[in-house]
Design a protein around this nucleic acid. Sequence first.
DNA 1: ATTTTTTGTGTAACATGTTACACAATTTGG
DNA 2: CCAAATTGTGTAACATGTTACACAAAAAAT
Lengths: 340, 340
Amino acid sequence: MSSIYQVAEMAGVSVATVSRVINERGYVSEKTRLKVQEAINILHYTPNQAAQSLTTSSTKLIGLLVPDINNPVFLEQSKGINDYLKEKGYILMYAESGEDDEEMSNMVRRFLSNRVDGMILCSRDFTQFGDMDAIIEPALKNNVHVVLNGYVDSKFEIDRVGFDNVRGAYLATEHLLKMGHSSIALIAGTDSTISEERYRGYREAHIDNHVSLNPALVVKGDFRQHSGYEAMLKILQMNPRPTAVFAMNDVMAIGAMMALEDHKVSVPDEIAVAGFDDIIWCSLIRPRLTSVVQPKYEIGKKLAEFLLSRMNESYSGPGRHEIFGSRLAVRQSTVKSEQQ
Amino acid sequence: MSSIYQVAEMAGVSVATVSRVINERGYVSEKTRLKVQEAINILHYTPNQAAQSLTTSSTKLIGLLVPDINNPVFLEQSKGINDYLKEKGYILMYAESGEDDEEMSNMVRRFLSNRVDGMILCSRDFTQFGDMDAIIEPALKNNVHVVLNGYVDSKFEIDRVGFDNVRGAYLATEHLLKMGHSSIALIAGTDSTISEERYRGYREAHIDNHVSLNPALVVKGDFRQHSGYEAMLKILQMNPRPTAVFAMNDVMAIGAMMALEDHKVSVPDEIAVAGFDDIIWCSLIRPRLTSVVQPKYEIGKKLAEFLLSRMNESYSGPGRHEIFGSRLAVRQSTVKSEQQ
DNA sequence: ATTTTTTGTGTAACATGTTACACAATTTGG
DNA sequence: CCAAATTGTGTAACATGTTACACAAAAAAT
């Protein structure tokens, strides 16, 4: 790999001059500039970002940690982050943590070791980590800013971007109630703040609409497709059988729909189904899946925005907490054909 | 950000000793080791990878360039790459090029500037770039290895991993012919090697099965969903109307199916549809989409494998070219119910 | 007890850039 | 035409690590 010294030698100038040419800083005569430029081209020289960042102490690198790259939710969020950051000259360093405590800590350390200028951590639920603060402390103590997507109680002043899960679940449940269902099964996710909040929305909608809650209607899943399938099998056994199902995320809702298909139960005529997240699959599957719309792209963008404003110190106050609102996309899976 | 000097000072030893503790190299007494370890913990010190890579001239970073992170094909491929590389201690630097010449060149330069140890470039079709060699030359001239996913004529000895498009298209077409269709419309992609090859498979299957080709049945798309929808509208106008459609990728096939749905044409009874890539959506949509299976994950893995073998010099011969074989996943979209 | 070997630690050079400062060559102004 | 201002270039220090080499202390061998 060629270095600035080789370029300097080939051009017959000092390294300082080469640096000036590259960074277009200070005085350089046209004649010299051309000589240097030519040497650079011949050697295919590119400045070593590592060495560069030693002096400038900025790498233009942002660490992004997501639990699962394959999950459409995080994917779209990443897209929002990437679009915003790329434009500002930053480049992303992706890493997958798989909702694992240890792994998460490792990747944060790895980011620090690469001297990222900042990092964005995403998780379905940070509360599961015994001590989230311990994970991010190394970053903060070294003045590397961190923003979070999700739920945390932190003693640090940290920016977070979240989503109004209570309201979202409320909307979906209310919609089902308004469609005349009074027995709505719930496919829940793993124990987490996110699940709790979505449950709360489900609950409140019942209360506000004077429909009594039946704990027997709650079946637990793990946010993955297969668990949705399994949960639906259990629901089909129930007696009396619920006429509607609300799944805490789309992937489980889709699993549930597959179970219904396999058992020749028609959606929405016999059982209506609603999901959460509004991933792209909702419009692909038939009947199309009613779902709570989460502005994933915008959430990503906001995360990036928060981070950058911290980094360039245009903001340095207490931890901000932006909660994005919900909207329900009503589709075929909850609207009987004669009602359409 | 704390440095090795601060650790050394706090522990009352020299930087060399701290370095020894961190890298577990050379002799260090237990007592000293503990003192240093403690200082590291207090300061939350992490070695600066940038400085480290200055001396070791290895960053453990691999650049990965894909045209579109949102495309399920590249996504799964990335997963294969990531899984393989992560295990070996490498970390990925993702970048999106959007099938753009300029952008691609930029990102390669960016990778070099970050002194990646190697890079993997993916494209649907490299031939579209006027001079692909010019893009990768800076890397190769600096001894940074490059592997490609796709089609290129290069003067360099470069490893490539591809897929047998001719055979894949042949299988899909043959299947449709065997199902009794003699008039099969083709939704083609943008002009590219990939399209040419898939066309060749379509053509050869016709010839081998003694069915005459009808150029009027070919409609051009751009590999995106909407173009599949539009193409299908044109196909529906044809007279006589074809009884089957083969789309050069799944995304277009799905667009086509949506058009058929909107026009209440039943699949596969009135028109059979087959796609290419076997993305996850094939199993989500109804009827399930018959598609050519591309071992995306394995292709990603192979790319990573090729790269690493070049990097650690366990291989340094001429450019390898691995072509993965095809298989057809037959699903509902091409098999009439009474035949099931 | 002396020599040899092993263990433990520090000094200084190097990897690749940036940049403050010094100095020389031009150009400008009176 | 000479002082002042501007322009052009080099030297050397610094950023943060690794490591060869030197040297001292402790342990083992004779």
